[in-house]
């Protein structure tokens, strides 16, 4: 099970809403223990496409994030982006470009403005499986 602090969910949502209608994107890193993965860091990354229908993570920032996660001994747990006009479900483009089978692909939908819908998926060899995740609060963790 993937566990994400409420504060990081809030930061991701704020990132999505601040850039809307352009899609946002970023990465979450954390630690893995058995079947549990705990997100501890969020890295908003520049959408080089600056598009309302696509994202392309800035390669320079992506390199920096990979190095930062490695130095902090973090695993790449979540790849997130927003769909500003469609549902929280991977598009054909998302599936075709899903090169990280171990990552959780998280989508923030702003189809209904002010009511963000967040869902996570595994995308492996073109197959989409929705993933459960838990949102943790300081008192519960």
């Amino acid at each position: 099970m993937l566990h994400i602090p409420q504060s990081i969910i809030d930061e991701m949502t704020a990132h999505a809403m601040s850039l809307s209608p352009v899609e946002c994107c970023g990465i979450m890193g954390g630690t893995t223990s058995g079947d549990d993965a705990h997100v501890t860091h969020i890295y908003p990354i520049k959408n080089e496409d600056h598009s309302i229908v696509s994202y392309f993570m800035d390669p320079k920032e992506l390199l920096w994030v990979h190095k930062n996660m490695r130095s902090n001994k973090l695993d790449l747990l979540v790849i997130y982006h927003s769909h500003t006009h469609t549902q929280a479900y991977p598009s054909a483009t998302d599936v075709r470009l899903a090169f990280y089978p171990d990552a959780h692909y998280m989508i923030v939908s702003l189809e209904v403005k002010d009511q963000p819908d967040i869902k996570a998926f595994r995308i492996v060899k073109g197959n989409i499986n929705q993933d459960e995740f838990s949102v943790t609060t300081p008192s519960a963790s």
Partner: peptide, 18 residues
């Protein structure tokens, strides 16, 4: 360092057309 790009999106962007 070898790093696969991370890209996608709700529709077909110009950058994403392979």
């Amino acid at each position: 360092s070898i790093i696969p790009a991370i890209a996608g999106g709700s529709g077909e962007g110009l950058r994403c057309q392979v």
